[in-house]
Design a protein around this nucleic acid. Structure first.
Lengths: 188, 188
DNA sequence: TATATAATTGGTATCAGGTATTAGAACCAG
DNA sequence: CTGGTTCTAATACCTGATACCAATTATATA
């Protein structure tokens, strides 16, 4: 394979990574080759046609938006005993990081613990009142965060919950949450 | 207009709202009419063809994902003086709420304050080390949250920042963040 | 009941953006 | 000069449409 082709193909790949909405004709114009050549390149690289690419993006986004708005918990629930304890797992992704540091932004880690803490409370309605939290060490994209939360005090209106998030053997986050129990009448 | 048509058209509209990926043929099958009838209905309702609908969803999602991953700050920055203070504004939406309570989930409010606190630190790399936070009252979708953060202590490696988030006249959130300043060598 | 009108169906031509395949030209190396 | 790689061209076909037109069916009203 001559380097012209190799170059074009790697260019094609990265161009479509950036912008999946380009048709073969536009691509042909960009690389100054025929449409057929682009088609051959796509075949070799296993890149589907524009419409399929758009469909993938659309479907992906559509299910993502829906599941996000339906999702009350950040992370996947692994264990939950209301009023007692719970465990959730969060796989961190590139979307959660700071560009510069490549570390996961604190509020994702907080969100996992916070939503688990709230889920733990055995009440119709529960809201975080306060929290005292500590980020012990940075988390990088790809790490699997396991959060364990436990009720440590349960009063009439307030529940105190201790949460700890680990990545492998390391404790990356600890926090204490005070969650308020509300009756339906008190909200809205 | 007869009620059959009216019914079908309102059904069509809501069906496509739920699932924009249906072709005219599938829709014709669903309503047990001809493909042409579906086309006429789409014309009258001003609904574009399936491919256009997919394209809209895809493009919308694509720009959203990109801006989200490029965005280091949750909310829009209104004022920022490095090492001193900053203000950001976050318009809360339906996507941020608990189904049951209709109140904005704590970690969105936290995320706004946390990202502003980190942005405030005059260092190449800054990470939240710990935080002590308080949610004073529930926030409902649609409220505009204004977060003000101010550096209150600045040591060699640690910066202490006080943040307050208000909605109208109400203080909905207060927090103290300890942010760690890191050199590039200490990360990655 | 006859008929005007609305609603629906069917068919044809055309398009974009492809797939799949075959044939051939251009280039380069041994 | 021959052979393999790379590129272009040509053709038939596909899906999901648009645009248009004629025919049919259903309904309401004079």
């Amino acid at each position: 394979m001559r380097s012209l082709k190799r170059n074009r193909q790697s260019g094609l790949q990265s161009l479509l990574d950036q912008n999946p909405f380009l048709s073969d004709e536009e691509l042909a114009g960009h690389f100054d080759v025929s449409v057929q050549t682009i088609r051959l390149d796509r075949m070799e690289l296993g890149i589907p046609e524009m419409r399929e690419r758009m469909k993938m993006v659309a479907q992906d986004a559509y299910t993502k938006v829906r599941s996000l708005s339906e999702q009350e918990l950040v992370g996947q629930l692994r264990e939950l005993e209301l009023g007692s304890h719970g465990v959730s797992v969060l796989d961190t992704t590139m979307e959660m990081i700071f560009e510069k540091t490549k570390t996961v932004r604190g509020h994702y880690i907080f969100a996992q613990a916070n939503s688990l803490a709230v889920a733990l409370v055995d009440a119709a309605i529960a809201l975080t009142a306060s929290a005292d939290i500590r980020f012990n060490q940075p988390v990088y994209a790809g790490e699997r965060l396991v959060c364990t939360a436990r009720v440590i005090a349960n009063a009439d209106k307030k529940v105190e919950i201790a949460a700890e998030t680990t990545s492998g053997d390391n404790t990356v986050f600890t926090g204490t949450f005070i969650v308020t129990k509300l009756a339906d009448a008190e909200v809205g």
